[in-house]
Design a protein around this nucleic acid. Sequence first.
DNA 1: ATAATAAGCAAGTGCTCACTAGCTTATTGA
DNA 2: TCAATAAGCTAGTGAGCACTTGCTTATTAT
Lengths: 206, 206
Amino acid sequence: MTARKSADLRRADIVEAVLDLLASVSPERLSTSRIAAKVGVSHGALFRHFPTKDDIWRSVMEEVEHRAQRAWAKASEIGGGPRDRLRMLCLAQLGLIEQTPAIPALVMAPGRHVAEDSVRPIVLRLMAGLMDRMVALARQAKAAGNLRGDLQPDDIAALLLGILQGLVLRWSLSGRGFDLVTEGDRLVCLQLRLMAPSQPQEVSCD
Amino acid sequence: MTARKSADLRRADIVEAVLDLLASVSPERLSTSRIAAKVGVSHGALFRHFPTKDDIWRSVMEEVEHRAQRAWAKASEIGGGPRDRLRMLCLAQLGLIEQTPAIPALVMAPGRHVAEDSVRPIVLRLMAGLMDRMVALARQAKAAGNLRGDLQPDDIAALLLGILQGLVLRWSLSGRGFDLVTEGDRLVCLQLRLMAPSQPQEVSCD
DNA sequence: ATAATAAGCAAGTGCTCACTAGCTTATTGA
DNA sequence: TCAATAAGCTAGTGAGCACTTGCTTATTAT
């Protein structure tokens, strides 16, 4: 018999529990009973706070979106040239995922999922948001002469984003068997070096 | 009442039906009833051919593995320098996925899935196999002077594989809204050009 | 031709799922 | 202090799940 909490606190608890559980259970196999057990509340009590499971998914995705916005904003505050800010944005994204491993599970949950209509649009919005930030930084970096002139900003972003996504996929499949940020920094710096203008210039990646 | 078939043919039908269905239903939500309906056979009849659903997953993964080996082998027969063979391997992988869109769903199915123990090891083996082929080609390309000398073969492969995986993820999320091979070829060629030795040399990507 | 076998069917079994109904009890504001 | 309200509980409901049972019928080998 847990201590009673206000509905707001309980809702936050539930969202937190879902994010925790998604580190080890796939979204499609995460049942409301397991969520209730994790929160420490009866199964029925869950539905006093969220009318349907879909509403839980919606709140979870809102929380994920907030965390992402926070991580990206923090990375952009660090300052430095656009090239460094691009690197920091990549690292911020990997750091976010390392701290919230539910994210890849939510993003990759494929096909027609019950919650598909709640989760998918926010996933797309998130990815588009990250892409936009990367394209903007790529454009600035190119203008500043930090990146080769023959590269389109969206291609720069597509290559970097792909490298991040591929790395996260391998990290998830490997059971998170390596340090995501460390390995990511290595690859991102390598890629930024490849995209540097042809006259070799020092790279601040170490 | 479908015409009777031999067990071997029926098993092949079932595997085929699963691959078809996985283009639109996630692996965790694909029920044996839906498979039976797609095959055109009663639900119970399925279990005459496969003792458990896990056995279906195993056969499906074997089929996927055969298709991948075939696609990769075919790409390596084309010939050309190691650099071109690396490009062709990437395109073969994308072509395979375009023809069998079940593959990303199977690879990305996260977390503890019922069939996890049947599917996961083969997914890992497949990815490791592709990685090995890419690393070997990268090593050859580097030795032939087609790629920068300061790049490690595994890093070359990791970058390229990441670009492929990121692209496939975006393709899946977008509802397969663009041509995977066309866009992939563009990005792969771009990346190969970035990894070319510093003295600019012609690239056979068009 | 016919017995043996192989492929199929309808109708279940017990389980888990998301969600509900109806009651109980802790907190709170007048 | 004590009703009103908000948060909780137990015990369901029907639907869908993987899988089984017992019977039927098509194919095939003698």
